[in-house]
């Protein structure tokens, strides 16, 4: 019983997160200006990080934690680099 409830809510959560990534992807592809696209990319990254956590709970293995952490790191660095580029026109001054 408890396993079933958890399984269903995991499925619903993963569907939610996939939809959220879809919304962000739409904003990234469509976004009228460059900053909208960067915002979409950042949202995709943070949702992917959360999706990794739900996969970890589903399989009961803590190794997904590392993947989530790396996605969070990469998302931060890449978004910051692109935003910096928009701000100055170059990444490293």
């Amino acid at each position: 019983m408890s396993a079933q409830v958890l399984g269903w809510s995991l499925t619903v959560s993963q569907v939610f997160l996939t939809l959220a990534m879809g919304c962000a992807a739409f904003r990234m592809l469509r976004g009228p200006r460059a900053q909208d696209r960067v915002l979409g990319l950042d949202t995709i990254y943070s949702n992917a990080m959360l999706l990794m956590l739900t996969f970890g709970i589903r399989t009961g293995s803590t190794s997904y934690f590392g993947a989530a952490f790396i996605i969070a790191l990469l998302g931060f660095v890449s978004t910051l680099a692109v935003a910096k580029f928009l701000l100055r026109g170059e990444v490293i001054e």
Binding site: L6, W8, S9, S13, F16, T43, N47, L50, T54
Partner: peptide, 20 residues
């Protein structure tokens, strides 16, 4: 765990919906 999962993911879905 189920409740927290549903709450958290619906919040992030709401956030992404706000992008649209």
């Amino acid at each position: 765990v189920s409740m927290l999962l549903l709450l958290g993911t619906s919040l992030s879905l709401t956030g992404s919906l706000g992008l649209l």
